[in-house]
Amino acid sequence: MSKIHDEMDEKTRAKGAFSRRGFLRGAGVASGALGGAVLTEEQAEAAQAAAQGPGAVAISLNVNGKEQKLNVEPRVTLLDACRNQLDLTGAKRVCDRGTCGACTMIMNGKVVYACTVLAIDAQGRQIQTIEGIGTPQKPHPVSTAFVNNDAQQCGYCTPGFVMAAKGFLDRNPKPTYDQVKAGLGGNLCRCGTYVGVRKAVLEAAGKKG
């Protein structure tokens, strides 16, 4: 008996939290604080549990250290949200099926294929795109090493490769040549720039190829 009661109670609570969340959104805040009032953990959890969509949903993404608010349908991938709505077009849509690595981003410190992450599911994570690790004026060492070693031709796979290489080097700061080869097995290039990529990653790791 008491179990059923608990369940009902939970459902009721979820409903209530959802309407509060709706109110918050109506007030122009998608999540987090409103005038100092913070959702309790319980409320936040319950709100998440309620189904959202299928229409566009207000979400908030932490991209390159910045909170970005956007409206997306739940079916929009992180890649498409970044490319189409945030104009972060460094990550490319190539296979769109989690094979080629051109869309590689770093999420909570780990490399991922952004084409197989839903934007709505990327909320609350630290998302790093190629735009977040450097600029042409102040490039990340991996980007510089790619230029120095001509690790790019048409360049369409390059941002994904740079992100994969950065993610790899963050975990393996002093890799061997063989580790480089094994560590970048999730990215494909069509022009055939792998020779340069290997050298670039070793150079960026402070080693000479």
């Binding site: 369940e7 939970e10 979820a14 959890e45 998440q48 549990a49 309620a50 189904a51 959202q52 969509g53 299928p54 229409g55 949903v57 349908e73 739940p74 079916r75 839903l118 709505i120 599911d121």
Partner: peptide, 19 residues
Amino acid sequence: MQAFEYASPSSLKEAVGML
């Protein structure tokens, strides 16, 4: 992708209940 509703429950019980 066909449009869908999305839910991210925090308890197993809720999750199973949604399926």
